[in-house]
Design a protein around this nucleic acid. Structure first.
Length: 288
DNA sequence: CACTTGACCTGTCCGC
DNA sequence: TGCGGACAGGTCAAGT
């Protein structure tokens, strides 16, 4: 589920909600969701306070006062939801979810000393919460190989073109989904940005011009920024740190709009399969 | 090496 | 209504 804009939205929410909170207890029901040595958890997490929340690619990093970090990947269906000690008042945008937590998909539960909680929910159990020394975060194999952050200034046209051209034999959709090319694009923003650039997802990278790739890079940055403004995309499971849904999907041009009109030319949007993923295109705007 | 496919899980939806 | 199969936003290991 969550791609860069969703993880960024969770990060911004958590930053406001959990900094300075002291961890009183952590429970989990599944070692895949919480693959940590209980002794390390006891020694370096329990009793520590949260000093920072940051994001790299689709990974959330919750910094602790012990110089350890809780590294969180939401994968497909993960949620990280904060619930205050008095819950949320009536009228909360997602009252039914928040007030029902924990539920059967809650796999990690962090209790703070003030009685509030942070719940890690994950229907499909692909996500995880790992505790490790902060100094070792950069040594993580994924962190070692992940590409540049698309919303940082160093993500220039040259950087993007050089990196994506390493994948010259593959489809452009597979290339932008490749986290070593750039960080944070998933299926939604791949389809949305390719539509924006008038490029067919199955086009081979080696057949695209630098002009097309520059436009694609611009569209990737555009859709990611727009989605952050809208609080991300809720297609199924995604919610932010307060349990609220995102609104980008209302602004999507092709994603999940098969059978509807292309907003640019009114041709009916099609759904197909590219790079093993459900793929949405306008057959008129995005010629093969 | 470059690239593609299947696996990891659970839930939901669609066709018979 | 029940059942089987396909599919769902990510990543990695194993295969070609």
């Amino acid at each position: 589920m969550p791609e860069l804009p969703e993880v960024e939205t969770v990060k911004r929410g958590l930053e406001k909600l959990v900094i300075t909170k002291v961890i009183k207890a952590i429970d989990n029901d599944n070692p895949k969701s919480f693959p940590n040595d209980p002794h390390a958890v006891q020694q370096f997490a329990i009793g520590s306070s949260i000093v920072s929340v940051s994001r790299r690619a689709k990974v959330l990093l919750i910094g602790l006062s012990t110089d350890y970090t809780l590294m969180v990947h939401l994968r497909m269906t993960g949620q990280l939801v904060y619930v205050g000690s008095e819950r949320w008042g009536a009228g909360h945008p997602n009252e039914s979810l928040v007030n029902a937590l924990p539920d059967k998909s809650t796999h990690v539960m962090i209790e703070f000393s003030d009685g509030s909680h942070l719940y890690f929910n994950d229907q499909r159990k692909f996500g995880w919460v790992k505790l490790l020394p902060t100094a070792l975060v950069p040594q993580d194999p994924f962190m070692q190989k992940v590409g540049p952050e698309p919303l940082e200034p160093e993500f220039s046209d040259e950087v993007f073109i050089n990196r994506i051209r390493r994948r010259k034999g593959t489809s452009v959709k597979a290339a932008i989904l490749d986290q070593t090319v750039l960080a944070g694009v998933g299926n939604i923003y791949a389809d949305e940005s390719l539509w924006g650039a008038n490029i067919h997802p199955s086009a081979i990278v080696g057949d695209l011009t630098d002009t097309q790739l520059r436009l694609l890079k611009k569209e990737i940055v555009y859709v990611l920024k727009l989605s952050i403004e809208k609080g991300g995309s809720t297609d199924r499971n995604y919610v932010d740190a307060e349990g609220k849904k995102g609104n980008y999907i209302d602004f999507a041009r092709v994603f999940r709009r098969e059978g509807l009109d292309c907003p640019r030319c009114s041709t009916i949007i099609e759904k197909s399969r590219v790079a093993g993923r459900g793929t949405h295109t306008c057959p008129s705007c995005q010629k093969k």
